[in-house]
Every structure is written in structure tokens, then in C-alpha cells.
């Protein structure tokens, strides 16, 4: 059985960041693996391990297991991809070229790129994080499922795949402490929620000189052209949000600030003494 995990290298705003035009000034961005995708990777590796274990006892449908990651990102993202390889992914694909670099990568564009990779790989299960922590769209996984004409489930925190690879039982984390239990036919795309598993640390394997090379694909390799990444979206502004709340900051040394908070709590009548 094969699992495809779509992961993203995300940008994080560093302390004291500044806005330049319609985005954060690049000098104030730090890059790393999207937190949600870390859980998607762990989930994928665990599902594959279960099939490996099952294959030892019986002739299960998914005797040969493989976990493949796909990421859309520039060369810089290979560092993040290496992290994923060190967390149990067997093979990695990175999609990028000049046309992709020049595009505003919206949900539809990412959907087309990932769908082309999925069509090549023919996975039984596709996993990705619920959302990326930088652009917070939360839509690519479900959009990809529709594009591929397969099933899906969003905001999943538990997955059980049946031995015959016919369906998956999932828990979807709804609002307010309620989970939905659902069953989806396979293949399917699941978007994985944080906190769902306990992600393993990166092992040094996969980092060494014998490491598997990261496979690269451009639009032409995927049978696409620049039209696939055209977008009707235009970023028109960026600012630090002003929610109309003016915050009163306590000044002074630590004791003075603590005294300020203590006086406030007394004034609010929520503490005595």
C-alpha cells in the first residue's frame, strides 16, 4: 500500500517583523515544516507500519508499503523535506520551476500540481495537514480529493484503514468537544489535525551522504503548462491587525508590573486580599 503525504514548508513571522508592501519583509521570515503536516507525516508512517506488521503475519493487501512525500516549494524547502525523510518517509518529490515560482499559488493551482503527482503515484491514501500555518487556507486537501474524484475527510484526529484497503474509519474533530465518526471509501484524502498523534523525532537516517535524492518535478514533467498556476487572486494589502482594542501595558520592573496586575485583579473583584 502506498501513502502520499503532501507537506509544506511554511514561513513564520519572527519577533519584531515588519511589513513590506503586501507581505512580511522577507528578512523577518523563518522557514520550517508546517505543524499540521508534521502530524500528517506521523499518521502516514504509522498506517504504513501497521501494514508492514500485518504483512509479517498474513498476506494482507498492502504487503509492500511506501510513504512518499510531495511538497511544492523552492530549493530552500529541501531542508524541510529532509526532516520529513528523517521522520520515516521513504521517498520525496519536490515540485517547482520558474513558472511556479512566478505564480500566486492559490488553492486551485496547488490542487492541480498535487493532483498531477497523485495521478503518477496512485496512492491508496493521501494525507496532509488541516491547514498551513502561514496562509491558513485550509482547503487544498479537500479540493485535491474533488479534483481526483476520490473521497475525503477534513480535520481528522484518528484513522483506521481496513486490511483490504477498501475504506478508512476516521474521527473528525468538530467544535466544542465533539467528534464525528465517519467511514470513507479508499482511496481518500484526509486532512490531519494537530495533537492527533505524537510525532516522532527526526532520526539521523536519511540525512547522510547515502540519502535518497529528492525527486524534482516541473510543470512540463507533470504534463501541465503555465496555465495550471494562473490565479485570479491579487494580494492588495497587508497590515498588522487592529481589532479596535487598546491594550494597556504595565510598565516598570517585574515587581511593579506584577503589582499592577494584582491591583487590577482586586479592582475587578475576582481576588481577595
Amino acid at each position: 500500500m502506498k501513502v502520499l503525504v503532501a507537506v509544506k514548508e511554511v514561513a513564520e513571522a519572527t519577533d519584531g517583523f515588519e511589513i513590506d508592501g503586501v507581505d512580511i519583509d522577507r528578512r523577518h521570515l523563518a522557514y520550517g515544516l508546517n505543524e499540521w503536516d508534521e502530524y500528517a507525516v506521523e499518521t502516514g508512517v504509522r498506517v504504513a507500519e501497521q501494514f508492514d506488521d500485518a504483512a509479517d503475519d498474513a498476506d494482507a493487501a498492502g504487503a509492500d508499503t511506501e510513504v512518499v512525500s510531495v511538497t511544492i516549494g523552492p530549493e530552500r524547502a529541501e531542508e524541510t523535506v529532509r526532516t520529513v525523510l528523517a521522520k520515516g518517509v521513504d521517498r520525496a518529490i519536490r515540485v517547482w520551476d520558474d513558472d511556479i515560482a512566478a505564480a500566486e499559488l492559490d488553492v486551485a493551482a496547488k490542487t492541480r500540481l498535487l493532483a498531477a503527482v497523485a495521478a503518477e503515484e496512485e496512492p491508496d491514501l493521501i494525507l496532509t495537514g488541516v491547514q498551513a500555518s502561514d496562509d491558513e487556507f485550509g482547503a487544498t486537501g479537500v479540493s485535491l480529493a474533488d479534483e481526483l474524484g476520490v473521497e475525503w475527510a477534513a480535520v481528522v484526529n484518528r484513522v483506521e484503514v481496513d486490511d483490504a484497503l477498501a475504506r478508512a474509519r476516521v474521527h473528525r474533530e468538530l467544535e466544542g468537544g465533539v467528534e464525528e465518526l465517519s467511514e470513507v471509501d479508499l482511496p481518500a484524502v484526509l486532512t490531519v489535525q494537530v495533537g492527533s498523534t505524537d510525532p516522532r523525532a527526526a532520526s539521523p537516517i536519511g540525512d547522510g551522504p547515502d540519502a535518497e535524492p529528492i525527486e524534482r518535478r516541473g510543470l512540463a514533467d507533470l504534463g501541465l503548462d503555465a496555465g495550471a498556476v494562473e490565479s485570479p487572486f491579487r494580494r492588495t494589502g497587508a497590515s498588522v491587525p487592529d481589532r479596535g482594542v487598546s491594550t494597556t501595558y504595565f510598565d516598570g520592573d517585574t515587581d511593579e508590573r506584577a503589582a499592577g496586575v494584582a491591583d487590577l485583579l482586586r479592582d475587578e473583584g475576582v481576588v481577595d486580599g
Binding site: A13, T236, S239
Partner: peptide, 18 residues
């Protein structure tokens, strides 16, 4: 033109859809 948050709600962006 829609307003959205990004980067863990640290930045608010506007995006136009043509």
C-alpha cells in the same frame, strides 16, 4: 476584496479576486 489573516493571525491581508 476579502480580508484574511495570515501567519498565525499576526498579519491581516486583503486579497482581490478578479
Amino acid at each position: 476584496e476579502a480580508t484574511r489573516e495570515m501567519y498565525g493571525s499576526k498579519v491581516e491581508t486583503t486579497v482581490a479576486v478578479d
